[in-house]
Design a protein around this nucleic acid. Structure first.
Lengths: 193, 193
DNA sequence: CTCGAGAGATGACAACGTCATCTGAAACTC
DNA sequence: GAGTTTCAGATGACGTTGTCATCTCTCGAG
């Protein structure tokens, strides 16, 4: 038997999953409270029992994504079979892969909401901390913060360029996101050798 | 006396200016066709005489911004008082400055519309070509395309991180967008010396 | 002078986010 | 176990939005 609080929690999860699905398949415009409710098996008003408004629901979806990324970053850092450079490259690739596979979710993760300007930074905490530690192994504690910020920013930009189709321009000679990541990590490594 | 076509063109310009103003001050949500019309001195239906739909209006605003950036890039390239490295740095700073001063416009410039996936790439053509030439002066024709793509992507990412407030996190030790740009250009220069 | 074209105004419609209110069942009190 | 509280969900309504069909009026060509 399912208790009332269990059922409520299940609905909340269903709403989050529905919103994430709709975001993936149809973009932000497809995420309407009515559609989310319908996909979760409830009506349009039900989400208001779990989230104060639509923006909060989207923040929750983005936070969920950041948390999963944080776990992957931690696993990457803990992987003893990889060199520091490989870990850095892996971290960047992980981020860029989200941008490629789930461009709308990715955009959500980096678009901070007007209502709560700190929501993103809070959600991104763990991912960034893990990545910072990985970078420190490569470039040392002294310069870690600057280079970690640069690397995350660059990876973010590469993913964004790819998502908006700007990288596909023949002007760039068919360069891929992976090429740019390699170039970047190569430059970092050359700088610290 | 103003002719009819002149007045129509003036309305079109007024609509574009109104949309850009509203975007700057209140973000994308503030750009409603009714508000744009009101600010341009017409009613809500008038924009449909100049743009097929709202998305087209926004594309036009973004295209305008890309064109102005293209002009600035050209002027930068033509400036004989700057070294190649300074030109590259200037180009990146110009882009990042737009991100800082007009974050909503900046986001629009890099957010590819569902209706016309090639609109952005077309609008960005000139800016990218100019920047490509500047980069070629620094790293040579051979590697110019890859590094230009990397630099634009990175600048884009830096601007995005700054705009979403993720750079302000104390974790990064108070690093600024300018710091990251300098670090990036410094690495490029070191690689090609 | 006539008339077609086109810019703008206006009314209407469906979809949206949101709120107030209602309903019913689970959970708690005695 | 009966009565009461609580809360997830359903429903109706409202204001706003993008968009379309239709109407008006004025400018410019013939």
């Amino acid at each position: 038997m399912i208790s009332r609080v269990e059922s409520a929690a299940a609905t909340r999860r269903a709403l989050l999953a529905a919103a994430a699905d709709l975001l993936d398949s149809g973009g932000l415009d497809a995420v309407t409270l009515r559609a989310v409710g319908a996909r979760a098996g409830v009506t349009r008003g039900a989400p208001y029992r779990h989230f104060p408004d639509k923006e909060s629901l989207l923040i929750a979806v983005g936070t969920q994504a950041w948390e999963m990324l944080g776990q992957r970053m931690q696993a990457l850092r803990a992987d003893s079979g990889l060199s520091p450079a490989e870990k850095v490259r892996g971290g960047l690739s992980t981020l860029i892969d989200i941008g490629r596979r789930q461009p709308h979710l990715y955009k959500l993760m980096f678009s901070n909401p007007p209502g709560d300007p700190t929501a993103l930074a809070r959600a991104a905490q763990r991912s960034q901390t893990e990545f910072l530690a990985v970078v420190a192994d490569l470039v040392g504690e002294q310069e870690a913060r600057r280079y970690a910020a640069l690397l995350i920013s660059s990876a973010n930009g590469i993913a964004g360029m790819e998502a908006s189709g700007l990288l596909a321009d023949p002007k760039w000679g068919g360069v891929t996101a992976a090429d740019l990541t390699d170039t970047l990590v190569g430059m970092i490594r050359a700088t610290f050798l």
